[in-house]
Simulated assay, not measured.
Amino acid sequence: MPKIRSSADLRNNYNEISTFCHDYAEPVFITKNGKGDLAVMSIETYEALTARFDLYAKLQEGLDDVAAGRTRPLEEFMQELQNRRSLR
């Protein structure tokens, strides 16, 4: 269940909200005048979330390449990797 706090709570209970975000690795939703305004989370949670989005984007690129026929045989790719390793 999402944790929802008011902007006044954020101002008055910052340390408590910060501790929650670090302990549970999930965002706290902040309301302003009774409406959703912000999502607050730890830096670690934010970095994990953006890393996941980056991974999803790369996976989608690969799926798009396959759908467009931009592929090559595994043997050719493996040979290229071996050639790169031998150049080091």
Rank of each mutant, 00 (worst) to 15 (best):
E61W: 04
R84F: 14
S18P: 00
M1C: 04
Q79H: 10
T45D: 02
A48I: 08
T50A: 00
S86G: 02
L49S: 14
A67V: 10
I17Q: 09
S86F: 02
K32N: 11
V40E: 03
L38E: 04
P27S: 04
G34H: 01
M78N: 13
T45N: 03
E75I: 14
R11F: 04
F20T: 05
T45Y: 02
S6D: 04
F29Y: 11
D65A: 07
M1Q: 13
T19A: 12
V28M: 01
E16F: 08
D64H: 01
S42A: 14
G62Q: 06
T45H: 13
L59H: 05
A25E: 12
L87W: 05
E47L: 12
R52Q: 10
R84I: 13
G34M: 07
K35H: 11
E61G: 00
G69L: 08
M1Y: 07
S7R: 01
Q60C: 09
L63W: 11
S86V: 09
L59W: 06
I17W: 09
T71A: 02
D65L: 13
R72M: 13
P73C: 05
A8R: 04
Y46S: 07
S86M: 14
S86W: 05
C21R: 06
E47H: 07
A25P: 01
S18F: 09
E75V: 10
M78G: 03
G69S: 03
Y56A: 10
R72P: 00
S86Q: 13
F77H: 12
Q60E: 10
V28L: 03
M78D: 04
R52F: 14
G62C: 07
D9C: 09
T50K: 03
E61Y: 05
A68G: 05
A57S: 05
Y24C: 11
A67C: 01
T45A: 07
D9G: 06
T31W: 04
R5E: 12
D23L: 14
E76W: 08
H22E: 15
V66K: 05
K32W: 11
Y24N: 09
